[in-house]
């Protein structure tokens, strides 16, 4: 880092420390119980002094009971996930085993006359990719990545880290799901996942990712919530703005 930049850092950090000499009053909360639990008081109006005490309760612990449902049981989670994916206009399929998933994707590919499909090495993805009739591009093999070749592909097939029932989101990472581009550049994104990968909430997905990649986070972790969309023209919903127009989720495994 240049000398100039580090001095800017010192200046800004000094300004921050200086600015925080006087603590700010807490936000006006709705819940009085919460104020107590968090160890804060609204008793004094703005401008009151005192030292800033860190919260004695995590915001997520506060929010957990009030956020949208993620489901208590595997059945509930499956149900909420399907419902959310449908609302998000994602295509959703169940396959009782990997072979069935491979057949399903094979028939979609044939029906749409896909010429070239990209994928990455993964136990759930390999059998599906190898069953295709068309050309395939394996991302990461060879290690030099050809973005122009990927741009020419009709679809990208990836695994995922987890599926979030609460929001219908799919968590992918650059370390485990074929890098950054595979899930965003081709016009169709196919996710092959196992039903055990369904989690209830964003909290669970984030927590699992933190544990899974302990100390070495992938350079990218992305929650994908439905196919790419925009409402920029007269606030009218259009799918496939820049990312995939279609998101096809195939869940492998017997019913929970």
């Amino acid at each position: 880092m240049s000398v100039k930049a580090s001095s800017a850092k010192d200046v800004v950090l000094a300004r921050v420390r200086e600015a925080l000499q006087v603590p700010a009053p807490p936000p006006h909360l709705k819940s009085h119980d919460l104020q107590e639990a968090a160890g804060i008081s609204n008793a004094r109006p703005a401008g009151a002094v005192g030292t800033f005490k860190p919260l004695s309760i995590a915001p997520l612990d506060v929010a957990r009971p009030w956020l949208p449902e993620g489901g208590q049981t595997p059945e509930e989670r499956m149900h909420i996930l399907c419902d959310n994916l449908k609302r998000l206009k994602a295509e959703f399929h169940r396959a009782c085993h990997l072979q069935a998933a491979a057949e399903l994707i094979f028939s979609i590919a044939r029906q749409r006359d896909w010429q070239r499909v990209a994928y990455h090495r993964h136990e759930l993805v390999d059998p599906v990719a190898s069953a295709l009739h068309c050309a395939t591009v394996c991302i990461g093999e060879p290690a030099s990545f050809d973005k122009r070749a990927l741009e020419q592909c009709d679809a990208g097939i990836t695994a995922c880290e987890s599926l979030v029932a609460q929001t219908g989101s799919i968590l992918v990472s650059s370390a485990t799901c074929g890098g950054r581009s595979l899930s965003i550049l081709p016009p169709v994104h196919i996710v092959i996942a196992h039903i055990d990968q369904i989690v209830a909430t964003l909290e669970d997905a984030l927590h699992d990712a933190k544990v899974r990649h302990a100390g070495r986070m992938p350079s990218m972790l992305s929650f994908i919530t439905g196919p790419s969309r925009t409402g920029d023209i007269e606030r009218i919903l259009v799918l496939g703005a820049h990312g995939p127009k279609e998101l096809i989720v195939v869940l492998v495994g017997e019913s929970p």
């Binding site: 609460q166 074929g178 409402g231």
Partner: peptide
């Protein structure tokens, strides 16, 4: 912001491409 459950992409970046990742920027 938009009335969605989540926006389509919520992405966390922790730096440039790692050596075992196939793509991504060399510098961040």
């Amino acid at each position: 912001g938009t009335g969605q459950p989540m926006t389509c992409y919520n992405t966390l970046y922790s730096g440039p491409q790692k050596n075992d990742e196939p793509d991504g920027p060399r510098e961040m």
